[in-house]
Nucleic acid binder design. Structure first.
Length: 592
RNA sequence: GCCCCCGUAGCUCAGCGGAUAGAGCACCGGCCUCCGGAGCCGGGAGCGCAGGUUCGAGUCCUGCCGGGGGCGCCA
């Protein structure tokens, strides 16, 4: 079932164990796991013993006898009820760490068979403010895109913005009322809330306005040129605003990724016609519906997916179905990831099921709802402002940066940083803290938004990882300055070759072993669409590094061989931290 | 009422059917002639409840309790 091969040292071990298990029973799973009593353990003997009707310990011993592991392990033992404990040899760790250090890609091989993965995320609405609800989708989607891309997949980003539908009657009429100049000014400064709410207020309080809005929707649907022109004004200025937020957030999305609801609008009649031709359409209470298998409503009756409303308008389900067809037929996706909040789970499952029933979605194609929970405030309720409104995303990001700047000023470490550089670092820290807090917890759970915790330099936070990275970079700065004073030749970090790595001290071994887990961490994060897996790995690398650093002097190592080795080890650590954070969309400044 | 998600230490979270359930914060106690102490080392304390499957369950299944969300013309 594993879609991507297990990478790194674990792969080698798994291969060897597999052949050993195959001698006893072809195809049985070695069940290789990292272990806290060894480097790895293989638990497959227990299940196999059951199947063969033999003693587990005896099976484990047979596996050990059959396995060729002498070049990888210094010790292999059978323990407990039948576990095989594997202790890697220092020479293997050393060899592997050197290979990784010498590899520009740090041991991550590009996929042999690249997938074309559509990732749909962010999804703000035109003329509506972006709020924390968009934060998670944008940040998680961005990290997934970066990781998939790094693994060599062909990533197609799609931003399914809300740029069509009945609210536009109201929004366009409001544009008419306030005048285009005024409207553009309002949208350009990012006061989308003001614009939307004024329109809403007129709609709710003014019967004539409401009627105009209704007629305007019809004009929009029928393609009236002037209406479309005004619609475009709203869309374009909103997108310009979204771009500002994306720039502030530091994500990959661009205008080219926008594929809003309006894009699919021309395809909707075809969706309905083809569903009808397939015999799936049922008229129910005036609406055209499909009843996917396995879904019922509160009365226990089949639950419909409404594709065309009784007034003739298309439901959003029609658009979502058109999306699937477009992504399969035109984009030629081999995978589709929906980075959408957990509440839409049922709706998406229904859409996927209908698409399958209609034959639009091949069974082999992986379609996944990458669901995520809500952002909660300290009171464990949906995050809101004191006034009870949803928090503007830009305000939140600005606060993150100013809080980070304060924290820097308090500490005053790199006092000689130029003002622009300071500001850039504050942005990296503040935005990084917000992103890391979001990405590091299991995405499907709700998470509690807490400024003090996420901006802390202690514990599992973005700033802590950035700090670990900056500390390593400072070693090389110092090395360089000492070299210019003493004439040492090893100062330049690029001058320390990977082959200099020697593994002797237990802390060196621990660091090397942790480094070697990098590729596996990225793969599992991608396989499970869970950036938190990569976060957990980077955090363990950072803590392993600080333990190492406490006990293993680098620049003051006892001898030149050790010093060069540790410089190479530590440089590799910094590269992994920087690249890993980069894959999460988080910057790693050299100083802070 | 039905469906989905969540429930692990005081708090915030990890735990891919495997051994004694791990971190961080907070708390307590150590380590400073410290290459960035925003650090390192150590300590106490926990799987919502009840059944079941399994050689083995925090993990899988069933029921219950608690929290959140969804359930026909909004997206």
């Amino acid at each position: 079932m594993r879609r991507w091969a297990m990478p790194g040292v674990a792969a080698l071990l798994a291969e060897r164990l597999q052949s050993a298990f195959d001698t006893l029973a072809p195809g049985s799973d070695p069940v290789l796991r990292p272990s806290d009593r060894a480097d790895f353990q293989a638990n497959g003997a227990l299940a196999l013993a059951k199947r063969l009707g033999r003693h587990p310990v005896e099976v484990a011993e047979a596996v050990v006898a059959a396995a060729r592991l002498d070049d990888l392990c210094e010790r292999v033992e059978v323990s407990g009820p039948g576990f095989v404990n594997l202790f890697l040899s220092a020479s293997f760790v050393e060899r592997s760490t050197r290979e990784m250090a010498a590899d520009r890609r740090l041991g991550i091989e590009p996929a042999a068979i690249p997938e074309r993965v559509v990732v749909t995320y962010s999804h703000p609405n035109v003329a509506k403010e972006m709020h924390v609800g968009h934060l998670r989708s944008t940040v998680i989607g961005d990290a997934l895109c970066r990781m998939l891309g790094h693994l060599g997949h062909d990533v197609v980003r799609e931003n399914h913005i809300g740029d069509w539908g009945t609210p536009f009657g109201m929004l366009i009429e409001h544009l008419v009322d306030v005048g285009e100049e005024m409207a553009i000014a309002e949208l350009s400064v990012g006061d989308l809330t003001g614009f939307y709410q004024s329109a809403r207020a007129s709609f709710d309080g003014d019967g004539a306005f409401k009627e105009r809005s209704r007629r305007r929707v019809v004009l929009l649907q029928s393609g009236d040129a002037e209406t479309l022109r005004m619609w475009r004004v709203l869309v374009e200025h909103s997108i310009a605003y979204f771009d500002e937020v994306y720039a502030k957030l530091g994500v990959l999305l661009t205008d080219d990724d926008v594929k809003g609801e309006s894009f699919y609008n021309p395809m909707l009649p075809g969706v309905v016609a083809d569903l009808d031709a397939a015999g799936l359409l049922v008229k129910d209470a005036g609406a055209l519906c499909v009843f996917p298998r396995g879904f019922t409503n509160r009365e226990g009756d089949p639950l419909p997916l409404i594709v065309q409303k009784s007034d003739g308008g298309f439901g959003y389900a029609a658009t979502d179905l058109a999306c699937i067809r477009d992504r399969v037929d035109s984009v030629r996706a081999t995978q589709i990831l929906y980075v959408v909040g957990a509440p839409q789970s049922q709706h998406l499952r229904m859409c996927f099921e209908v698409a399958r029933m209609a034959g639009w979605l091949p069974d082999r194609l992986r379609v996944e709802h990458v669901a995520f929970g809500s952002v909660l405030g300290a009171d464990h309720r949906m995050l809101r402002t004191r006034a009870g409104t949803s928090v503007k995303l830009v305000d939140l990001l600005d606060e993150a940066v100013s809080r980070a700047a304060e924290a820097m000023a308090e500490r005053d470490r790199d006092a000689d940083l130029a003002p622009e550089e300071r500001q850039a670092v504050a942005r990296a820290l503040g935005i990084g803290a917000v992103k890391y807090a979001d990405l590091s917890t299991d995405r499907v759970r709700d998470y509690v938004f807490d400024w003090d915790r996420m901006l802390s330099f202690e514990g599992d936070t973005g700033p802590y990882l950035q700090y670990a990275h900056a500390r390593i970079r400072s070693i090389f700065r110092r090395a360089a300055s000492e070299a210019s004073a003493t004439g040492h030749s090893w100062a330049d970090e690029s001058a320390v070759p990977a082959s200099a790595i020697v593994i002797r001290d237990p802390q060196e071994r621990a660091l090397g072993l942790t480094l070697l887990g990098y590729a596996a961490a990225v793969h599992s994060a991608v396989e499970e669409s869970s950036p938190s897996k990569l976060c957990a790995y980077l955090y363990s690398l950072a803590t392993t590094f600080t333990s190492f650093y406490e006990r293993c002097p680098v620049l003051r190592a006892p001898d030149e061989t050790t010093r060069r080795s540790r410089l190479a080890l530590v440089d590799t650590t910094a590269r992994v931290l920087a690249e890993g954070l980069g894959l999460l969309g988080i910057e790693a400044p050299a100083r802070m």
